[in-house]
Design a protein around this nucleic acid. Structure first.
Lengths: 228, 228
DNA sequence: CCTTTATTGAACATTCTGTACATTAGCGAT
DNA sequence: ATCGCTAATGTACAGAATGTTCAATAAAGG
């Protein structure tokens, strides 16, 4: 740890940006017929279950509807095919993450260092992991073996890459060399990796613990001894 | 860069382990009927093309055979279904990588530091990237949008995780805490990330350049200024 | 309560799957 | 060059999934 700070209050940006009122549900119940909401939820749950059981590829619309207790016609009322079904729920989740990402982009290296030096979890990171936990079953299904290749890159680009770039030195952010591009890819995927591991191992650690882990890993070189 | 060394010859391990005679083709032409080799190659190429064009999920055995110029019965002579087809080629590639991985496991932090301090590419890393380049079209297809979720984790576990663990401090390798597990996941996925980026961007950099990039990233903290 | 709209069940043509078999073509070895 | 073996072909088949349509029913919302 090379960061030394004396103040006991986080830097300005840490508290200046107020989090908007957290909406637990995005737009599920906004104006949509209750029957539609019910059907979509049933299909979402069926999709998650079947992805875990047999993988997305071998799911059929028949199975989906049988599991959801719906008629096959109802499925085609709302979705064009099973890809469209999955894409819809992925889009919802990514859209939620964009909200968090927007506030994470304000993060500065100074602010990060402040929290790291005190071993206190960054509020925005805790919020991120809290949200991910609220979507645990979907994430586990979609990032697992029977999941979707395209999801992890989206998660990486909308969250991890942003996080890294926000603490990247100014001169490299504005004028990135090829090496810097790899540098960003390196750490963005590293962050995706710990999220991925957390999801796959059943989210054993609390959101605060994960935030601390994520923060500490930014200040450790792989070769050197790890102070625990 | 904190590594200081004076000797101009790499540490013992660097040259002690001799690379076995590189076999360009694994077992394709070993005893198999030329017709079988032809059919399998045609199917492999058709698979790669169609994965790029429409993604693995929506490929049908009909398309595969039409593109390969084969009868559908021929497909079922060699493979049970399209998943089996993809799995076969993935297994071949992973098996090749296990060879390289075996020699990479010998890598020590001292040896790595020797090369990093001189900005010379590690031979074993160059070999790795050379091999990956020889499989560029398959890798691009299988790691891309229409690819296979399960492949990247396999690549990570058989190559990247091994690489990280070989230079991990002794006491953490034998007795890993939860944090160390995340630490390994962090850097293993980081390495997977630069391989992934290299593959996706069309392998612009030479194998030597990639080896140098990979080496350097082990000795940089994200927060600090990058000396180019 | 009444209008609107989602859900249901059934039917349909189409496509893909996995298997089978007789025939043709090509490989490997003598 | 010839012969035996085996892969590839063409065709056919049943079973299953797809995506669409429609009249009848059920349940929302005003």
């Amino acid at each position: 740890m090379t960061v030394e700070t004396i103040e006991t209050r986080p830097p300005a940006q840490a508290t200046a940006v107020k989090a908007p009122a957290p909406r637990t549900v995005r737009k599920s119940t906004r104006g949509e017929d209750r029957r539609i909401v019910r059907s979509k939820n049933a299909l979402r749950n069926a999709l998650i279950e079947l992805m875990e059981e047999e993988g997305f590829d071998s799911i059929t619309v028949n199975e989906l509807c049988a599991r959801a207790g719906l008629n096959r016609g109802t499925f085609y009322n709302h979705f064009t095919d099973k890809d469209n079904l999955l894409a819809t729920f992925e889009d919802d989740l990514i859209a939620d993450l964009e909200d968090i990402q927007g506030r994470m982009a304000q993060l500065s290296l100074v602010e990060l260092a402040w929290y790291v030096s005190r071993r206190k979890p960054l509020p925005i990171l805790v919020e991120l992991f809290d949200y991910l936990r609220s979507q645990s079953s979907f994430l586990h299904a979609v990032m697992g073996d029977g999941g979707d290749v395209r999801f992890a890159p989206r998660l990486r680009d909308s969250v991890c890459t942003c996080l890294i770039q926000s603490i990247l030195h100014e001169k490299y952010r504005t004028n990135p060399t090829p090496f810097v591009e790899y540098y960003v890819a390196f750490f963005a995927n590293a962050y995706l990796g710990i999220i991925n591991r957390w999801v796959e191992t059943g989210m054993q650690e609390s959101s605060e613990e994960m935030a601390l882990i994520a923060q500490r890993l930014l200040f450790i070189k792989p070769g050197e001894s790890i102070e625990l």
